[in-house]
């Protein structure tokens, strides 16, 4: 009995190892063939996404999926959508936006112009939320928001600024909880089953394609918002992006993570100091050698 159990465990282990190898090979292949670099994404998440796609494509293994993906760019497109998780909300985690209002905005007021980078903006809900917030604080006019994502399909959706009407009730609630005191309905117009973000909110937003894994710094920002992106990265990739952000932040610039994301890397902690430990707002400190 014991032996059988052991054997089963062993076979499970072997299975796991094979899967890991398959995933690694697949990612390497993906990188070499298409140029998409997911090699440093968090393994468990990747495995789940790939398995799901394999399942949907009716193939039995990731290796099989690999063959299909290499030959059929259509599947690659679908896979790309699988790999970019586009879960977002307007005023997602309202308390973050509330904290942003009280802890970050006062520091931005004195700036003659404000540059904000929203990395991993997905379908743009949080970018528009930020634009609304800045508008209400009277800062939107002098702000330029750069909203980037690696998924071009979702970027197009973000540019459209159309949100399904069925979410609006909960978004309105989020807005109110985030400290918004105006009418949320001022910021959108309703069209059948979706709402459109009003154009004036889009004026100071640039949507652009940018991949945190491969691309470099493209400007210096006062604020970088990168929420719920790091959860898909492994430590190595995280470290790369920490440096990318450090390069892209002005002195005393703010870095905002998702509320489940904490900088644990000791190296990164030397240049990012915690401002709000709950809402995960960090601030860049000019590096001083003691």
């Amino acid at each position: 009995m014991f032996k059988i159990n052991n054997a089963r465990k062993d076979s499970k282990q072997i299975q796991n190892e094979i899967e890991k190898l398959e995933v690694e090979l697949f990612l390497e292949g993906l990188y070499q063939h298409y140029g998409f670099d997911f090699r440093n994404y968090a393994y468990s998440s990747l495995k789940r996404r790939l398995s799901l796609r394999a399942n949907l494509e009716n193939v039995k293994s990731i290796s099989e999926l690999q063959g299909k993906v290499f030959r059929e760019p259509e599947i690659m497109k679908r896979l790309l959508n699988d790999l970019s998780i586009n879960v977002t909300e307007m005023y997602r985690d309202p308390s973050f936006f509330k904290a942003f209002r009280t802890e970050v905005v006062p520091h931005l007021r004195s700036e003659p112009s404000i540059r904000i980078w929203h990395a991993g903006c997905s379908s743009g809900e949080e970018v528009y939320s930020m634009a609304i917030l800045l508008h209400e604080e009277g800062l939107l006019e002098k702000s330029q928001i750069y909203a980037t994502d690696m998924n071009e399909t979702i970027l197009e959706k973000a540019i459209d600024g159309e949100i399904s009407i069925r979410h609006m009730k909960s978004y309105t609630k989020n807005y109110q909880q985030s400290g918004g005191e105006k009418e949320f309905s001022e910021y959108y117009t309703v069209n059948d089953d979706y709402v459109s973000i009003k154009p004036f909110l889009k004026e100071n937003i640039v949507f652009a394609h940018h991949n945190l894994v491969t691309d470099h710094s493209f400007n210096e920002f006062h604020v970088i918002v990168c929420r719920n992106v790091f959860i898909y990265f492994n430590a190595e990739l995280k470290n790369r992006v920490y440096h990318l952000f450090n390069e892209s932040l002005s002195d005393n610039g703010f870095l905002c993570f998702g509320n489940k994301e904490t900088i644990t890397d000791r190296d990164a902690l030397t240049f990012f100091k915690e401002v709000d430990p709950i809402e995960k707002i960090y601030r860049k400190e000019s590096f001083k050698k003691s």
């Binding site: 468990s44 998440s45 789940r48 998780i85 586009n86 959860i231 994301e261």
Partner: peptide, 13 residues
Amino acid sequence: TEELQSQSEELQQ
């Protein structure tokens, strides 16, 4: 935590 969050996002998606 991050793993949970990513799972939750995936599930949400």
